[in-house]
Design a protein around this nucleic acid. Structure first.
Lengths: 230, 230
DNA sequence: TTGATTTGGTGATGTACATCACATTTTGTA
DNA sequence: TACAAAATGTGATGTACATCACCAAATCAA
């Protein structure tokens, strides 16, 4: 993990929509309490249970958000793309983080002192409003996907995952799967073996193409239908 | 549904912690854009898909929050106790409500114009902060319970539901189940038949007592253990 | 380059739980 | 009070998917 020369948040090209609203004075305060760091693929950013002394803003890269259930099984909540905060709800609602965060690619992140962040929320209602909107959307989306896990059965959940990568994460019909099949099982609440079997089935039916880690969706409408019917 | 004589939000004894923070001017604005209504058990407050023109604050009573999946199955997200807002995340993040709300008891609610509510968030950072904290906590709690549905199996989820009623909703070892076994199935992601069977099993094992709708938890530690081991 | 570790593929087997099909009891209402 | 509708109880049956067991392929580390 490499700390980068600190530069002014005003000039930062990766800053969040919320931070863009801050006044010059507030931006100065932020700059003084923010440090940029580079992380490598596979690095843990922070773990569930850690104190929320800092909030992390993801400038570039892809991150896995997950938790371990009481039965020791991992559950992946979402993948987080650049220009998002990690663990906002935990930081705002509690003293400890509820989820763990791991780098799926090399990352650039900013660590922001959480006291300063909360201070900014309280001093600038428009900033607070932007944060509220993004927290609300993120939570509704996550919840929606979580509900589907107990409402749909395996093929439907698998289709959901493929659509998630294609439409939300990469916005393309072709993409390289950034996680292992084990992780894919943790994302779709099933087992690694079932993922393998579903891959071969979907390949055989010409719904998707799979070359190594590269997935191409051939029949999008069929995939969406499988997602709907569960 | 009965509209009550409007009285000043300043004098309201059921106002939220967030509203208690507002300035006299802001409270005046709220009073002018808020109306209290009485609803009967079984009434629908609003449905998923409706426009978020108003936000509803629950003054007294118990509410069921739910959604219908694409496979037509209902899923209950949570029961909401007095002194909470209904559908805050939807109102803040989107133009339409994502969940439906139904009265499990007779209710008293306030309808607040959502434009005014958003205005208050933007004009008062401390108010916004309180809202942010409650949205964050509610979402983390809901998500946690949702994750357990796909991580644990039936007895564990049933135990979770019993603990939810006992510890979160009623804060007592004895309580009257406010929902049918059908609803209980929708809350625990199982079927009505399985709920019945689990009831008889837990009764026979002396974990709970069931008289009509009245449930008494006899072995709390055992129930917590079942919840943990799934 | 080699051996170790992680990841991925596939069959055989078991089981948790849904589904179906009724009977019975309770609740709401005409 | 009586009848319909909703809610509950319980068995028989089926199946989706986990689990186990083992092998092959890819990746990593020395």
């Amino acid at each position: 993990m490499t700390v980068i020369n600190k530069y002014d948040c005003v000039l930062c090209k990766d800053k969040s929509c919320a931070v863009a609203i801050l006044t010059p004075d507030e931006l100065k305060l932020l700059t003084g309490n923010c440090s940029e760091v580079e992380l490598k693929r596979g690095d843990t950013i922070f773990k569930a249970g850690s104190l929320t002394t800092h909030i992390v803003y993801l400038k570039t890269g892809l991150v896995k958000e997950s938790l371990i259930g009481s039965n020791k099984k991992e559950q992946i909540i979402q993948l987080i793309k650049a220009h998002s905060y990690l663990g906002l709800s935990s930081m705002l609602g509690y003293k400890t983080n509820h989820y763990s965060y791991k780098a799926l690619e090399d990352l650039r992140v900013c660590y922001i002192d959480s006291t300063v962040f909360k201070q900014l929320v309280q001093s600038n209602g428009k900033f607070a409003f932007e944060i509220l909107v993004s927290v609300s959307r993120e939570n509704l989306n996550n919840y929606h996907r979580c509900v589907n896990k107990s409402l749909k059965q395996m093929y439907g959940r698998f289709a959901d995952a493929m659509l998630y990568f294609s439409q939300v994460i990469y916005e393309s019909n072709t993409f390289d799967l950034p996680i292992t099949q084990n992780d894919l099982a943790a994302l779709t609440a099933t087992t690694r073996e079932s993922i393998t079997r579903t891959f071969t089935k979907f390949k055989n039916e010409g719904i998707i193409e799979l070359n190594g880690k590269t997935i191409t969706i051939l029949k999008m409408d069929l995939l969406e239908n499988i997602s709907k019917t569960g």
